[in-house]
Design a protein around this nucleic acid. Structure first.
Length: 465
RNA sequence: GUCCCUAUCGUCUAGAGGCCUAGGACAAUACCCUUUCACGGUAUGAACCGGGGUUCGAAUCCCCGUGGGGACGCCA
């Protein structure tokens, strides 16, 4: 078997879409699995809609996910000479021809066919046939170039995810491969690129299934070998509807902003439409070893944010504290909170990372530790009763007398206070949380007090009591 | 309208004719842990779209319906 070469070929008209990211992941994993080559190709022939910013956004998204390419990025706009060369060859070989039908005529034809409930298609009026007399080319009209699609028979391929697909050539019309201005069109560029780049496995979204027979026909006309195709079904939003920019987070960078770890997004995407038995949580190394085209689901998959959240929480628990601290520091800084203001972030992260589903939640939780947040009047009224205040004042004296600022000393100090006042643990611990953090819930209170430090703990106690 | 794809718990999925009284995961519910909130643990409920075949036997194969999606551009 020849060396595996796969490609990801986005068009730079927006951000790296979550569906595109999964396509890239699968193409990347397949190449890695087979020690092959993963190629990045930018399909920017649509000059109107392609932007350098979008190219950068795609590159950034790929980098965030860690999907590195071995070749490219290639840009179709830089390969124009090559496309024109192939078009000239096809014109000479008779596998393509000039068509002078104007857009207006085409529109009229389409309207007529739609009125008759027929499938809109080019009628072949400029297609040369033996014994057929073509009209005289109208003066001053720049022709387009059309591919001379076979009239009879069928095109078939064994799709690696959908099985055998066969399309009759009578369903296909002679599609345009070069516009009137001479620029080549998408379906043609893809063919030349896949051929020139030696792509062995075309792994792409299933919105391209209908393009495949055309592309295979051109490949054959060129005498090129036909790659294997694997068409991935699309990803639907949480609501079961097609993903939309308005309703869903579609850009991978949205997920970065929303506090997801790339390994969680990757793991989630890998399991969306692909499976390895009952395995749910696995590393990219493991994924690459397991990945195959045989276990890809043929039907569309609905995105489930709750499951992503669960995976993300899992990976946050696994992540090392230093990395999380740096992520949280960035987020706090953006909110105008000085990450250096409180105790060492790493120590606080260690205390809180089991309880956060994403980095923003983690930052939310750390904020009242890092900076002193006064409890709202409502919370104070609810929790800081006279009895509670008295107990906390006594506790403050115990804290002041603490020989060592450690949990093993601090914990008993709180318990002793409970005993002194005949209170249960929550009756002291919750008011203490309210004073120290401005909220009634936190991890184990002795651990919080320890990490907060002696000076800061006493300062906050003094400020409120 | 024509062509193409698709259909297992609410969701992601396992399942390649008997191993299926259909398994796992997320979510849900209950309990345990925790004298807080989470985390964690345990348990429970929850599905083969419908109808015909083929077969000794069908979630698995075939056909027809129905639902969902895609394509039909001088867009990609």
């Amino acid at each position: 078997m020849s060396q595996v070469r796969t490609r990801f070929a986005p068009s730079p008209t927006g951000y790296l879409h979550i569906g595109g990211a999964r396509t890239a992941l699968f193409a990347w994993a397949y190449a890695r699995r087979h020690a092959g080559t993963f190629i990045l190709r930018i399909e920017d022939t649509d000059l109107e809609r392609s932007t350098p910013q979008a190219v950068q956004a795609i590159l950034d998204g790929m980098q965030w996910l860690g999907l590195s390419h071995d070749e490219g990025p290639y840009y179709q706009t830089q390969r124009m000479d090559r496309y024109k060369e192939v078009i000239a060859q096809m014109l000479a070989a008779g596998t393509a021809y000039h068509c002078y039908t104007s857009k207006e005529e085409l529109d009229a034809l389409r309207a007529e066919q739609e009125a008759k409930k027929e499938k809109p298609r080019y009628d072949g009026r400029w297609r040369p046939e033996p014994g057929k007399t073509l009209p005289a080319p109208p003066a001053g009209v720049q022709p387009v170039v059309r591919f001379r699609n076979p009239l009879d028979g069928a095109v078939a391929w064994d799709d690696q995810v959908k099985g055998r697909i066969e399309i009759s050539n009578s369903e296909l019309d002679d599609f345009i491969i070069a516009r009137a201005d001479g620029t080549p069109t998408y379906n043609f560029c893809v063919v030349v690129d896949d051929w020139d780049m030696g792509i062995t496995h075309v792994i792409r979204g299933d919105d391209h299934v209908n393009n495949t027979p055309r592309q295979i026909n051109v490949l054959k006309a060129l005498g090129a070998s036909v790659p294997l195709y694997a068409h991935l079904s699309m990803i639907l939003g949480d609501d079961g509807q097609k993903l939309s920019k308005r309703r869903n987070s579609v850009a991978v960078t949205d997920y970065a902003e929303r506090g997801y770890l790339p390994e969680a997004v990757l793991n989630y995407l890998a399991r969306l439409g692909w499976s390895h038995g009952d395995d749910e949580v696995f590393s990219m190394e493991q994924f690459v070893q397991w990945f195959d085209l045989d276990h890809i689901t043929a039907s569309a998959a609905q995105f489930n944010t709750e499951k992503l959240d669960w995976l993300n929480a899992h990976y946050i628990k696994q992540a090392n504290d230093k990395r999380l601290a740096s992520e949280v520091a960035n987020r706090l800084a953006k909110r105008g909170v000085d990450p250096e203001a409180g105790p060492p972030l790493e120590a606080v992260v260690a205390l809180y990372k089991d309880r956060a589903a994403n980095l923003n939640e983690l930052a939310d939780a750390l904020e009242p530790v890092v900076t002193f947040v006064h409890a709202s009047p409502e919370l104070q009224a609810q929790h800081l009763t006279d009895a509670a205040r008295a107990a906390l004042k006594s506790l403050r004296e115990r804290f002041k007398a603490a020989a060592d600022w450690k949990k093993i000393v601090l914990g008993p100090a709180i318990k002793d206070t409970c005993t002194e006042f005949g209170m249960k643990m929550p009756q002291v611990a919750i008011p203490l949380r309210v004073v120290l953090l401005g909220q009634p819930q936190s991890p184990a209170i002795d651990a919080v007090v320890e990490v907060l430090g002696r000076d800061e703990t006493l300062r906050r106690l003094d400020a409120i009591l």
